[in-house]
Design a protein around this nucleic acid. Sequence first.
RNA 1: GGGGAGAUAGCCAAGUGGCCAACGGCAACAGACUGUAAAUCUGUCCUCUUCGGAGUUCGAAGGUUCGAAUCCUUCUCUCCCCA
Length: 426
Amino acid sequence: MKTNFIEELKWRGMLHDVMPGTEELLNKGVVTGYIGFDPTADSLGVGNMVQIMTLLHFQQAGHKPIALVGGATGMVGDPSGKSLERNLLSEETLNHNLNCQQKQLEKFLDFNTLDNAAQIVNNYDWFKQFSFLEFIRDVGKYLTVNYMLAKDSVKNRLENGMSFTEFSYQLVQGYDFYYLWKNKGVMLQMGGSDQWGNIVTGSELIRKKEGGESFALTTPLIKKADGTKFGKSESGNVWLDRNKTSPYKFYQFWLNASDEDAKTYIRIFTLFTREQIEAIELEQAAAKHTRVLQKALAKDITIRVHSESDYNAAIEASEILFGKGTAESLQKLLEEDFLSVFEGVEQYKLLIEILNDGIALVDLLTDKTTIFPSKGEARKMIQGGGVSINKQKIEDVNFQLTTSHLLNNKYMLVQKGKKNYSLVVF
RNA sequence: GGGGAGAUAGCCAAGUGGCCAACGGCAACAGACUGUAAAUCUGUCCUCUUCGGAGUUCGAAGGUUCGAAUCCUUCUCUCCCCA
């Protein structure tokens, strides 16, 4: 069954701004729309999930989504939301990032349905042959500097300076829209609210150059309830790439969402229906401690980004690490299960010999592993009650570890704080 | 071109000769409480440390002094006002 795209985005809280006439256009028939992705990293992060979901809803509403990877725009650097000039990425890095992101995108959209299959394009394909002179004649001529200067992304930078390169960015992205409009019948560009200016430039170009019509729609920037940035955990950005953020950590990220945030997230990042979500919320309200909301959210998104078995493994590890049984359940864990359960947990391999005469805990944490960057810091954390071995808190700074602290004669579970685990394998 | 203000740790921001590794706030990290939530309270928060200390900071470089973030000189950058 096809959904109404705009309605869908509205109730999910994913609609920030729409150009007039967009809804009418979407109601008339199948529309081709696109969203651009910036290849600044070799993986997409959870922040990009908003745009991926937007495309997915777009497709489910019967429209044709195009994901654009910015091989060309990435070479220039989008000044939107940046207070400083960005460093240019090398071409190799860019290509690598592009390939990685493309693979991730392919996972979420349906590229095989006949009528509105998704598509991926790279704007480098139409920019590589475009000479500078051609560009300033064919594109630059249609937009005034006055117009370009009025953009927030430019205005905010006038005091501190901005290179011509970044200044031109909006033209490059604007031309993408024009190109896709002209050659692929794209009528709509979508993106985060910070992209509004760039999107409108494209529309303006289409209008000035060909008198054509085009439309735009943006999604709100997601912030956490406490006003901090979304998409970061203590250990940094949360990535979709399992090598950069393990499925276990990914699952934990969502599970740790605050109640307030979880309500926002479940609408944006899952495909649950309105009724389903409201039911889950009721359940949560009745029994807050069960955290069904976070669990449903984390489950759905972990399975879609990774897999069912990754999800199960994450659950299993989470239950052992955070469950009631604590020390006992650890002891009971079978040898063969040990590694698979802790697959997503940071691991260190050491020689068992170092335990023969005992080793100071502090040395293990710093010299033998990189769990702590310095002895002073490790000591402070131990004194503060922030270190546990096999779920048992250690508060003695001079604590010695021996083979008696091994689980299954092989493993030692080191805990830094409440949520950071490392497994040392001997 | 003329006049004025300023540059302090991740950010904001005190400090204007020794008591300054530098008040305070935010962010971050940890502990308690709890529901792996929020709020609250507590601790840590330049680097290293055998926890006794040691080393390196206050835009940059020189200088004065027993002693400088604080005084002097030069330089760099930012902001404001006048033209």
